[in-house]
Amino acid sequence: MRLKNIKKKALFVLLLLIAVVQLFPLYWLITYSLKSNGEIFGDNVLGLPRDWRWINYKTALSGSGIIRYFLNSIFYSVVTVVVAGTISAMAAYAIARMKWKLKHFVYGIFTIGIMIPAQAALLPLFQLLDKLGLKGGYLGLLIPYISFAIPMAILILTGFYKSIPKELEEAAYIDGCGIFRCFSTIMLPIIKPALATASIFTFLGTWNELMFANTLVDSQKYRTLPVGIMSFSGQYSTDWGLIGAAMFLATLPTILIYFILSNQIQESLVAGAVKG
């Protein structure tokens, strides 16, 4: 019994150590974003800041365009989540419930989207958006984001639709409910958890996306936060505290959303993955 107890304690310590490893870079980022170079490069590499330099945050926010990039990123993410979520919820309903011949084929096309590398579509996409006159504006980035968010959303939502018993809809249709009203008033409320999951994945993917944002947008006006911070850190490469502040500002929303929704994320990831 005692041996078992020791083993249990050792296991707990191990879990704790791994938690430290997983959290450490975030801790490091937060502390050095509040330090001066003197502390970061000198004798206080790991500890809490001795002199809390909030001015790093003030400098990062003022005049560097970070606020603009921040708002842009929120705009791109919210529009992508709403549009991709809506059209994917509809398409997944058609795949899971409606009766048509090509549905397995169409579902297959969407699942390919999960495996293919985005780089492989980048150049023709660049040319296509350029021809359509969309490249360099909001739509020029929104459309690729929406398009690349669709497969994962459809995969999650189709699996969820299939797990819902058909009786509910049947009763509604027999009562003379039209398909659009039935979809919006009966199905949408039921699929809320799956929709939330798909939205979280879409949000994270869009908010953190780097390659499209770096390639398809030139002007600062439409720039996203990750690209903005990358050029910012090139510009101030020696001022670690300042870059740290900007990076923490970019990380904060995802961490907050994660903490608010972590139960939802974990449950939905589980539900989605197990069905696979």
Binding site: A19, Q22, L23, W207, I229, M230, A250, Y258, Q266
Partner: peptide
């Protein structure tokens, strides 16, 4: 632990 271990996933690759 489950919550902590997942945190790096939500941070952008750039950061």
């Amino acid at each position: 632990f489950r919550t902590i271990y997942f945190i790096p996933v939500v941070i952008s690759s750039m950061v």
